[in-house]
Amino acid sequence: MLIASWPWFFAQLAAAFVVVNLIFAMFYVFDRGGIINARPGSYLDAFFFSVQTLGTLGYGVMAPRTLYTNLLVTVESFTGILTIALFTGIIFARFSRPFARVVFSRIAVVTPFDGVPTLMFRTANQRGEAIMDASVVVTLARQHTTLEGVTMRRFQELKLMRSNNSLFALSWTVMHPIDQDSPLYGLTPEDMDEQDVEIIVMLNGLDEILADRIYARHAYWADEIVFNRRFVDVISVTQAGHRLVDLTRFHDTVES
């Protein structure tokens, strides 16, 4: 519920509220005549009496008559207090939870950089404020068959040219040199597809407003890693000296 959209979140709360009242209404109906001014055996009257009890409305038209109904009202009143506290806590958590609002390029590229084949992808900060002390961890996941013939998923962390960014404000191109020490060394696109390669990206940083950690995750599969392409430049400088990121071209590449 913390990551659902607001319309879906409120729909879930409304559904939970209705379900709770439907359940209590079923128990109220068992005691025919247990509610003053309610039609005996009326599930609809029992439902609206439950709504009034759970919401502590107390209009005074319907009221409990028997011991059974009074005990049930006591249980529902306590349930209502817990429900309101729970809903309030969830809503507060949603408002106080910082969202990363970080966008990753749709593809990763392998292109020469200073004469070395380099895996690159880029990310941009869509927030109104910078992300402080940002760091990124990139992990290679692929199928591996041991000498005994056992196939397993193997994870290897990739060494990056720069894994930390003290002030992530605009765009950040993450690069891994594919040298002889790299697990990707010598792999062709066909090899990556055969080994079911996945590049897992984990980014985290500090929200400078709330002083809380934020996290973002992305993954690139073998068919999303393109060779001999490079990203176009999306950074421009205005006449006032401000740097801007053109997100409309953020995913564009050209032949390298």
Score class of each variant (00 low, 15 high):
M161G: 15
R162I: 12
R162W: 08
R162Y: 13
R162G: 09
R162E: 15
S163M: 14
S163D: 10
S163L: 11
S163V: 04
N164C: 14
N165C: 12
N165M: 12
S166R: 12
S166V: 13
S166C: 02
L167D: 15
L167T: 13
F168V: 09
F168S: 04
F168E: 13
A169K: 14
A169C: 08
A169M: 15
A169P: 06
L170I: 08
L170D: 13
L170H: 15
L170F: 12
W172R: 10
W172E: 05
T173Y: 07
T173Q: 12
T173M: 15
V174D: 03
V174P: 06
M175T: 14
H176Q: 10
H176D: 12
P177L: 05
P177F: 08
I178D: 01
D179E: 03
D179K: 02
D181M: 13
S182L: 09
P183Q: 06
L184N: 02
L184F: 11
G186A: 10
G186H: 04
G186W: 02
G186R: 00
G186E: 03
G186F: 07
L187E: 01
L187P: 05
T188F: 04
P189Y: 02
P189F: 03
P189K: 08
E190H: 07
D191L: 08
D191V: 04
D191T: 05
D193I: 06
D193G: 13
E194I: 09
D196V: 11
V197K: 06
V197G: 01
E198M: 07
I199V: 08
I199L: 10
I200C: 00
I200W: 11
I200G: 02
I200S: 04
V201Q: 03
V201R: 02
M202A: 15
M202H: 11
L203R: 04
L203T: 03
L203S: 00
L203P: 00
L203M: 08
L203E: 02
N204F: 09
N204I: 00
G205H: 01
G205I: 00
G205S: 00
L206W: 09
L206R: 10
D207V: 02
E208G: 03
E208M: 06
I209Q: 10
L210H: 05
L210A: 08
L210P: 00
A211Q: 09
A211W: 05
A211I: 06
